[in-house]
Simulated assay, not measured.
Amino acid sequence: MSTKKCWRLTVRDEFSSGHALRHYEGKCENLHGHNFGVELTVQGEELLPDTELLLDFKVLKQALKQTLEALDHRVLNETPPFDRINPSSENLARHIWRQVEARLASSPDPQAQKVRLVSVAVSEKGRQTATYMEWDA
């Protein structure tokens, strides 16, 4: 029996935005703001031979930071794609996943193309978290 091994890297960042949840029927249907926390995790099976790193943290942090810049200090309901879809934490997590995935795939760092996203979690106030993941069925 063979044992599979991998490493996981996690980075965290935050952004501040306002949103109003459509069709919510409660206070959150009104415009309000959050300091959203974001946690991004990737994994891979191969360390670089010279540095023994899976991926330089700065590459991962940059991909996340560039994604969050488009959301920071915005009214999400007026910011694509949330001008069409509900700016829920669930949809934010999926949006961030897709943006970071594309940034890693097009990164000039070949190691960035070897890692796989595991999860993106978005939290409001640090008490509630919505996590998005994808996996092969």
Rank of each mutant, 00 (worst) to 15 (best):
G33P: 03
S123T: 06
H32K: 07
V122L: 06
E78V: 10
R103T: 05
V42H: 00
V120S: 00
R103W: 04
C28N: 07
L71M: 07
P108Y: 04
Y132H: 06
P81G: 02
L104M: 08
P108V: 08
Q128C: 13
E101Y: 08
E25I: 13
C6L: 14
D136K: 10
Q62W: 10
A130V: 07
G37Q: 11
W97D: 03
M133C: 13
P87S: 04
H32L: 09
L104F: 01
M1P: 15
V75F: 05
P49W: 03
L68I: 11
D13M: 08
K61M: 07
D72C: 08
A130T: 03
T67F: 02
P81E: 03
Q99F: 06
A102I: 15
V75R: 09
E69M: 14
P49V: 04
P49A: 07
A102W: 08
L68Y: 01
A137I: 15
R12V: 14
E124N: 02
I85F: 03
S107V: 04
E14N: 14
Q111A: 14
A121H: 03
I96C: 02
E101M: 08
A93C: 04
A121S: 12
L64T: 05
S2P: 15
S2N: 13
R94K: 15
G44V: 12
H34Q: 05
M133R: 15
S106Y: 10
L54W: 00
N91A: 01
C28Q: 04
Q113V: 06
L40Q: 02
Q43V: 09
V100T: 04
V120D: 02
Y24H: 14
L104I: 08
L60I: 05
K61H: 02
T3H: 13
R84Y: 09
V118P: 01
G126K: 00
H23E: 15
V118I: 11
V115I: 10
V42P: 00
Q113N: 06
S16C: 14
T51Q: 10
K58A: 12
V59L: 06
K5D: 15
K125H: 09
G44F: 06
L71I: 07
L31Q: 08
E14V: 12
S107W: 01
A20R: 11
Q99E: 15
L40C: 05
